[in-house]
């Protein structure tokens, strides 16, 4: 998770470059048609890349996920390493994975939320886990994480005080993003 000054830098970049122009609708058809008329140039693709290059993307993803988890921990963990729990929600998964989420009493604008997961294998390369909560019809992505080789993970983060929770679940997301609602659920409080 990035710190506040970095996020402000991103905001500045977004505002500075502005929205991209919308491509004319005909471009898609024209580009496809033009491309398919073309013949390929020299084809010389290596079947296997050196180890460093094959590992670069997963290592990058792992580093970012680690940063997210560390960020969440920094946000949420109190001095004793625990939280003032007012409710605990249990989650189970089809493969035997288990998880608990502890909600703390509200402290001003937010409340602490502690996640603990057991028996969940590390996400495959290029993927990660994400904790979700439903507040009515709204779905909130609360924290991204991954499990270690011991198939465990714990993270603490914050939830706005005015947001409730009807259901909690964990999905396995693709690092490159994906269509909403298509990520498989690996833990669910309603399972």
């Amino acid at each position: 998770m990035m710190d506040e000054p970095d996020l402000q830098g991103v905001e500045r970049e977004l505002r500075a470059v502005g929205a991209p122009p919308t491509p004319p609708p005909a471009l898609a058809t024209a580009a496809r048609a033009a491309a398919l008329r073309e013949t390929p140039e020299v084809v010389d693709i290596r079947r296997r890349q050196p180890l460093f290059h094959r590992l670069r993307r997963p290592v990058l993803a792992a580093a970012v996920i680690a940063a997210c988890v560390i960020g969440a921990l920094v946000i949420g963990v109190n001095g004793r390493g625990g939280i003032d729990t007012i409710r605990t929600v249990s989650m189970t998964g089809p493969s035997g994975a288990q998880g608990t989420i502890k909600f703390a009493s509200a402290q001003g604008p937010s409340r602490q939320v502690a996640l603990r997961v057991n028996d969940l294998p590390p996400a495959p390369a290029g993927r990660y886990y994400e904790l979700w909560m439903a507040d009515g019809s709204a779905q909130i992505a609360l924290v991204a994480f991954n499990t270690g080789n011991n198939e465990r993970a714990q993270a603490t983060t914050a939830l706005p005080s005015d947001v409730g929770w009807d259901r909690c679940w964990v999905t396995e997301e693709s690092w490159g993003g994906g269509e909403p609602g298509t990520a498989p659920t690996v833990l669910d409080s309603q399972a």
Binding site: G9, D135, A138, I140, L159, P160
Partner: peptide, 24 residues
């Protein structure tokens, strides 16, 4: 038609991802 908290959560999550991806 989303709760304000959801918008804030999504915004912060998106900004963090953008920061990582833009630097990558």
């Amino acid at each position: 038609s989303l709760p304000l908290g959801t918008v804030k959560t999504r915004t912060r999550s998106a900004l963090a991802k953008l920061g990582e991806r833009m630097s990558d």
